[in-house]
Nucleic acid binder design. Sequence first.
DNA 1: CTCCCATTGTTCAAATTCGAACTAAGGGTG
DNA 2: CACCCTTAGTTCGAATTTGAACAATGGGAG
Lengths: 158, 158
Amino acid sequence: MSSLNEPRWLDQDEMAAWRGFVTASNLLNRRLERQLKEDSGLSHQQYEILVHLSAAPGGSLRMTELADKLVTSKSGLTYQVTQLERIGLVARRSCPSDVRGVIAELTDQGRETLRQAAPGHVALVRELLIDVLTREQLAVLAEGLGEVSARLRQDDTP
Amino acid sequence: MSSLNEPRWLDQDEMAAWRGFVTASNLLNRRLERQLKEDSGLSHQQYEILVHLSAAPGGSLRMTELADKLVTSKSGLTYQVTQLERIGLVARRSCPSDVRGVIAELTDQGRETLRQAAPGHVALVRELLIDVLTREQLAVLAEGLGEVSARLRQDDTP
DNA sequence: CTCCCATTGTTCAAATTCGAACTAAGGGTG
DNA sequence: CACCCTTAGTTCGAATTTGAACAATGGGAG
């Protein structure tokens, strides 16, 4: 055979896609982190917590659900929710249907902070990513990475 | 006017692209991190250091160049190079043309470790990302995110 | 040549992240 | 109802990351 145990390396196009993905991701995160911190005193992670809570019905989510949406560890979320609670943007409630459950809930102040932070954040995402790409590229990106994410979620769950 | 100070929010497609990007990036990183650690005892960051050094002429790079390629902070790189030096995969040399300079160089053992770690890593990248996408999607991803990265590098440098 | 500002890499303290261990409570089976 | 395996969230210590401060050198303007 032509390749005994030789793995299928990435060809030039594949490598370009992979490197582009990694690099863009790192660069973007760096910039967003900087801007959010300067602009609103929030980390990107904290901002995302507010976003997900804000999008959820009642502005609240179980800790585990939230951790899944954020793609972070449970302990990491515990830490960040504690931080956000400390500064009054999120509150913890106990879950009525499950004594073990903890519900993170957006406070009024949390909503207000998000309302204030969002425009600058969105503008930067637009400038650095969205507006750099064409409609077609965006569509491909959404579909392709959506599929990638879906598969990753699947065989990670077990 | 229709929008006084109202920012241009992301429409459904744009949001899908952005969320897909963030989510896929997080999920991928998590999986790669786990696999590399189990398989080779390396973090993704450490693996990338080895990759970039391996790709560089002489298997060596100035610290700052390396930090740029990795998209990480100088201090973060100092830390990781120290770790890699400790386990014998990288060595530090002083730069002939600049007394201040430090050159990180891949050791034979570093090369060997990379040679050993690469197949499993590449296979997973392939399984989770590359092979999930079509050729066309990959091309769009490479071009689009390449452009995004290029722009990010530009106005970050000043 | 001298002054000054930029660059280089490291150190440092603080913040964050992770996984493993843990406590406590579901929830189905017998 | 008792048992057992699973799930929820937190705690803990170790590892990592960051930006600011720092010491030392480079390199160009005058």
